[in-house]
Simulated assay, not measured.
Amino acid sequence: MVAVAPLSGRIARGEFVMITGRSGAGKSTLLALMGGLTRPDGGRVTVMGQDLWALSDAERARFRARHIGFVFQFASLIPTLTVLENLLIPASFLPPGEGGDRKRALELLERVGLPDCADRLPWQLSGGQQKRVAVARALLNRPEVLLADEPTADLDEETERAIVELFVEENRAGTTVVMVTHNKDLVPFASRHLILNAGQVHLAS
């Protein structure tokens, strides 16, 4: 079974692309391919002119830390670390001064509506709050590319809209955003809509 069929495509710098499709259509796999987390069976995955699989594992990890932010389908916070410590993890993959810092992390917590949660542990947060922490973490290093897999799942309508508007704000500042969602009501926020069906990518009409 092919999770994502052979394809050739390009996402331009500064686009906001929304990807929809049924469960199991291959949306998460496609994001993992784009971010260099999953090796393709053939061809190349190029981000900002760099062939991701021409890099060593260590080089690819540094490239991701510098240039790509991920919001995974599950928050995946480290339970023994505080919210602030979880937020600062992406900076640990870069030399001192290159990644985000405490000030940036606290600003992001404010932007996702969790200004008083820095010292809490993940178990003290709801599932939706943990997802918002994951969104803030993805933005810590000011990535040029943001890959978001169902970032608004488990969020109430008001918070969902706030998160997408945050992505729009980051996009207008120059970040390329690729977001997977089941909620078609969010599609108008994007500049392009792709539909994934049985591993095939289609441009929405």
Results as ranks from 00 to 15, higher is better:
T20G: 07
V2D: 13
P96D: 14
F74R: 14
D119K: 15
S92T: 14
L55E: 07
V177T: 06
G26F: 11
G21Y: 04
L140I: 09
V201H: 01
E157Q: 09
A136C: 10
Q73K: 01
G24S: 13
V71D: 05
L88K: 10
E170W: 12
L146S: 04
T29C: 01
G21M: 10
R39V: 09
E165T: 02
G42W: 02
G36Y: 14
D51F: 13
G69Q: 09
R39F: 11
L114T: 06
E150K: 00
K131I: 05
H182W: 09
I68R: 10
K184A: 13
A136R: 06
R111Q: 10
V164T: 07
T175C: 15
V133T: 07
D149L: 00
T175K: 06
R120C: 14
Q50G: 06
G42A: 11
L106A: 00
G36D: 03
G24Y: 13
D154V: 13
V135P: 08
D51L: 04
G24F: 15
R64F: 05
L55Y: 09
R137H: 06
K131S: 04
L37K: 03
I19M: 14
L55K: 13
V71S: 09
G100P: 05
A138C: 09
P143E: 02
C117E: 14
R132N: 00
A91F: 09
S23F: 08
R111P: 03
F63M: 04
L186H: 06
V180W: 03
D156S: 10
G49C: 06
G49E: 01
R10F: 10
Q130I: 06
V164H: 09
L186D: 01
T181Q: 01
L106V: 08
A32S: 07
W123S: 10
A162C: 02
S191G: 14
R22P: 13
F63T: 03
L33I: 01
L87H: 14
M18L: 11
I163W: 12
V83L: 03
L7M: 12
P96W: 11
P90T: 02
N86P: 12
A173Y: 10
E169P: 06
T176H: 08
Q124H: 04
A153V: 08
E169T: 11
T20I: 10
G49M: 04
A65C: 08
L166C: 06
P6K: 14
K27W: 02
R111H: 04
S76G: 03
Q129L: 12
G199T: 04
G100S: 04
M48N: 13
R39L: 05
L203A: 13
L194H: 00
G35F: 09
A91T: 06
A25N: 12
L196W: 08
R172A: 07
L203G: 09
R10N: 08
F72A: 01
V17F: 08
N141D: 06
A173S: 15
G97R: 15
H193E: 04
S191W: 13
V168A: 12
R142P: 03
P79A: 08
A134V: 03
G49H: 05
R60V: 07
V164K: 05
E85A: 15
V4L: 11
I195T: 13
S56P: 10
F93G: 02
T176F: 11
R192L: 07
W53V: 00
V71F: 10
L108P: 08
A105H: 08
L121D: 05
L121E: 05
